[in-house]
């Protein structure tokens, strides 16, 4: 037989646990959003290795001409 003890204590804990879960999910979303915005503001970045795109750098005289 399973014990199905319900108590006001459990309600309080559930409320707290749900609150903490929501806060953690929101925090993760904020950090993700922050990363996206910061990367967008960085300018021309190569997607594959996260470096500035060489082709966007100003051409130097005598180089690659």
């Amino acid at each position: 037989m399973t014990i199905r003890a319900t108590h006001e204590l459990h309600d309080r804990r559930r409320g707290r646990n749900v609150g903490v879960a929501v806060l953690l999910a929101a925090f993760a979303a904020i950090v993700f959003g922050l990363s996206v915005v910061k990367v967008q503001q960085t300018g021309g970045i190569q997607g594959f290795d996260h470096v500035l795109r060489p082709e966007m750098l100003p051409a130097q005289e005598g180089v690659g001409q």
Binding site: R12, R13, G15, R16, V20
Partner: peptide
């Protein structure tokens, strides 16, 4: 001994 989320 068991505070609610609201208490925090």
């Amino acid at each position: 001994a068991e505070p609610t989320f609201r208490d925090y």
